[in-house]
């Protein structure tokens, strides 16, 4: 009995303390070091924030470079297919161009009318200051089962602040949750931690909650409210962060929201610098 207890303690101690050969550090010393780093990071001691921001910037750039081969191979396939289809595509594009030329006049008229109506209503015109819209490239889009986020190549140097909304083609994508000097992390709408106030076509208010899957769900709807299919969902702007009326997605038959922008297919996004002037959280 005592022999087996001795065996256990020897094996246990050896696993924790053994060094030598390739092992320059014992497991126990590294566990202590990891714990110290963890608590320094979690409790945000003053000097850790800039250090973490610097490490983030460096690692994100290296990640971007290291991921080039994994991005290059699928892109090569796409490029080859599009090269083969280029003639047909050119014809289609010519037809589409003619169509859009006709539509342009209509759009111009409607945009003027919309501006005038907004002036009458004294509401803020969403796109009045296009210089405050910042285009950013997606550096890292690592698919994690637990966190749905992306890294963009714009940080505090370009004026990005925590909480700023992120859009693609004027559709809402997420918001900034971490800023570094040269990069930022965006929490996508489908992340489990994402909650935004939304309004539905018929005027009902709700909270759009990320479910971890590609389709977020609607919570806190009015009592006895029945979700119908194909109802447009917009940001309500009640949080003062997201511009009211920014399109988010459409409801499906299961009551989930199908986002207008596929969160797995982001390569460029826009940051709306208008909304937040100071980081206060």
């Amino acid at each position: 009995m005592s022999v087996s207890r001795d065996d256990f303690s020897i094996a246990f101690r050896s696993a924790l303390l053994k060094r030598g050969g390739a092992q320059k550090f014992s497991v126990l010393s590294l566990i202590f070091l990891a714990l110290i780093i963890f608590f320094l990071d979690v409790y945000g001691v003053k000097f850790t924030k800039p250090v973490r921001a610097f490490i983030n910037d460096v690692v994100y750039r290296v990640t971007f470079l290291a991921s080039t081969p994994t991005r290059f191979v699928p892109q090569l396939g796409k490029d080859f297919t599009s090269y083969i289809n280029v003639r047909k595509e050119n014809e289609n594009l010519k037809i589409e161009l003619e169509k859009y030329k006709l539509l342009e006049l209509n759009v111009e008229f409607l945009a003027d009318e919309n501006k005038n109506l907004q002036k009458i209503l004294e509401t803020e015109y969403f796109n009045k200051n296009l210089s405050n819209i910042l285009l950013a490239k997606v550096l890292v889009d690592k698919n994690s089962p637990f966190l749905k986020s992306i890294i963009i190549n714009k940080g505090t140097r370009a004026g990005v602040l925590k909480g700023m909304p992120i859009t693609k083609d004027n559709y809402l994508v997420g918001r900034v949750v971490e800023t570094n000097y040269l990069s930022s992390r965006i929490l996508l709408l489908n992340d489990l931690n994402s909650r935004i106030p939304v309004t539905l076509d018929q005027g009902a208010q709700a909270i759009l909650s990320g479910s971890g899957s590609n389709k977020p769900i609607l919570e806190y709807l009015p009592e006895d409210y029945e979700i119908l299919e194909n109802i447009n969902v917009f940001a309500s702007g009640k949080d003062g962060i997201f511009a009211s009326g920014t399109p988010v997605g459409k409801t499906n038959d299961k009551g989930e929201v199908e986002l207008f922008v596929d969160p797995n297919q982001l390569s460029f996004v826009t940051v709306n610098l208008n909304t937040i002037k100071k980081e206060d959280f």
């Binding site: 690692v59 690592k142 971490e178």
Partner: peptide, 10 residues
């Protein structure tokens, strides 16, 4: 941790 956005060291 840095790439995934978790607290450092976890």
């Amino acid at each position: 941790d840095v790439v995934m956005g978790f607290p450092l060291g976890i």
